[in-house]
Amino acid sequence: MTASMTGFAAHSLTLDHASVGIDLRSVNQRFLELHFRLADEFRSLEPQLRDLINRRLARGKVECRISLNLLPAATLDNGLNPAILERLSHWQADVLQRLPNSAPLSVNEILRWPGAVQTATLSQDALNEATLEGMQAALDELIESRQREGGKLKRHILDRLDAAEAQVAGLQPLLPALAAAQRDKLAERLRDALGETGHERLAQEVALAAQKADVDEELSRLATHFAEVRRVLDQTGAIGKRLDFLMQELHREANTLGSKSVALETSRISLELKVLIEQMREQVQNIE
């Protein structure tokens, strides 16, 4: 499926004592550019997270945020820590012996001492494993989001492509009459300038002008490029760069068509083609 480089995914997972939030955002970028904003517990995972994204995405600027929130159950009273209490008691006795006038520790101070109240602990290995699995799920959501957006872009491009092909198809049957009118107009001007004695020169000039104004080759290349755009849009994977190149080629042919124009109708169609091609090009910039 055609995929956009723009997408968003938000995935969360709940463990025994914590919840993990994973947010992925992607926007247009010529290449794949990754940015991470990770809670301290996940810093060591960045190389693995980077590898996961590299394997799933080809282009786009991607921002990955992973947060960790302890659940209320993790901070409930799980009893006092005997080792900490023993250490505090020893330290307090030593201080009071050296400084008899010192105030003893209050119950509130003891309870606030780091580690004095035992809380639930998280296994870092289990946390890492769950986070990597959650990242895969978040990437699935991001890719689905980019594909939905890509489907809209494809429809937009195909609509403009249909209109461009209709313009070319409408011009084809007009070419013989436009060329004949141009030859007659040029021949009349040359006869006025050369008189009746310049028949050979007249024929040469008319033939040369007709050759310069011939747009069959440009119309043929436009048709070829139109067909290639359709073919590429039906492919999977990263197709944006190929489409961008084709838009450049289409614009070049439309410009040449305009420069060779010998009639108002040809100039109008050249301008209309350039407008449609530019509209397609703007959407192509969003495609992976």
Rank of each mutant, 00 (worst) to 15 (best):
A3P: 00
V62A: 04
H225N: 07
T14S: 13
R43T: 09
A263R: 09
A181G: 15
L88N: 08
A74S: 14
L222N: 05
E86D: 14
T266M: 13
K260A: 09
N54C: 07
L264T: 14
L190H: 08
L24A: 01
E109V: 06
D125R: 11
M280Q: 10
Q235Y: 03
A18T: 04
H225W: 05
E63V: 08
R189P: 10
E272T: 09
H225P: 04
R87N: 10
S26R: 02
D51A: 13
K241L: 05
R146F: 00
L243S: 03
A58S: 10
K212S: 08
Q29D: 11
A203W: 04
L52C: 10
R50Q: 11
K260D: 08
T266P: 10
L271Q: 04
N101M: 10
L250Y: 04
D40P: 14
V20L: 09
L178V: 14
L127P: 11
V232D: 05
K274E: 09
Q283R: 08
Q147V: 00
W91A: 15
L158P: 00
P104C: 01
L76F: 07
D94E: 15
L222T: 05
E188G: 15
R231K: 15
S67T: 15
G134F: 02
L142C: 02
G79Y: 04
R98L: 07
N81H: 03
S19T: 13
L32E: 02
R221P: 13
E46W: 01
A18K: 02
S267V: 03
A263Y: 10
A9F: 01
H11A: 11
G79M: 08
A164S: 12
R59W: 00
V284C: 02
V215R: 07
S67H: 11
S44A: 15
R50D: 07
D94P: 07
G7P: 00
M5P: 00
